[in-house]
Design a protein around this nucleic acid. Sequence first.
DNA 1: AATATATTTCCATATTTCTAGAAATACCGT
DNA 2: ACGGTATTTCTAGAAATATGGAAATATATT
Lengths: 104, 104
Amino acid sequence: MKIDMDTAAELLGVLGNHTRLAIVRMLVRAGPQGMTVGDIQRELEVPGSTLSHHLGHLRGVGLVWQEREGTSLHCCVDYRMIDALVEFLTAECCTFEPTMTGTE
Amino acid sequence: MKIDMDTAAELLGVLGNHTRLAIVRMLVRAGPQGMTVGDIQRELEVPGSTLSHHLGHLRGVGLVWQEREGTSLHCCVDYRMIDALVEFLTAECCTFEPTMTGTE
DNA sequence: AATATATTTCCATATTTCTAGAAATACCGT
DNA sequence: ACGGTATTTCTAGAAATATGGAAATATATT
């Protein structure tokens, strides 16, 4: 997956918050089955409304998706987005040679 | 170079701004000799005070350092910081197995 | 229907960030 | 010392973000 600079800046901005980065890290570690909002809330000890707000951000940029299971919402991270961000940084910001794929 | 989550969040936040990401990308492409503030300003067409503000942020987290040459200030990106960020993302956020280096 | 649990939405407030003009500072050439 | 170019600091307004309580919504159980 290839992302442009606007998308990259957006992803970076969303991850550039302590709480949200912690959420993503937790979700990554939780593996494919993810965690419920409540699980996250208990671990992070953050009010529900605040957590929901942050999850909204993460959902908004596609880093996290949710699936209802009964009364709970399972949250899963989309690894592809993180991979895409790493790829962007590596390709665009880690070399002083113009990108070899020559997109522009 | 290994960074912790607070540092990573800080770096991500600073890079999560369109203008600043553009600056870093430009500096990376400019190579080791970097660019002057004026060069950046001409390319980005942003007021000096605004640019200076953003450069301050980048300097603050160590992503950019500056060296005076006459009346101009040469700006250079610290590749190690970007590498460190990529490493952090790869190690902490790209796998659902606990880090194999077992730091905690 | 009533209750309980899980989560979000609404709302207000506090704080930070972005932006940029104006003034100040730094350096250089004459 | 003066004038010019480069850049920062000061200042402030506007916009965005963060936070969390209270009410609303969704689902399940009895």
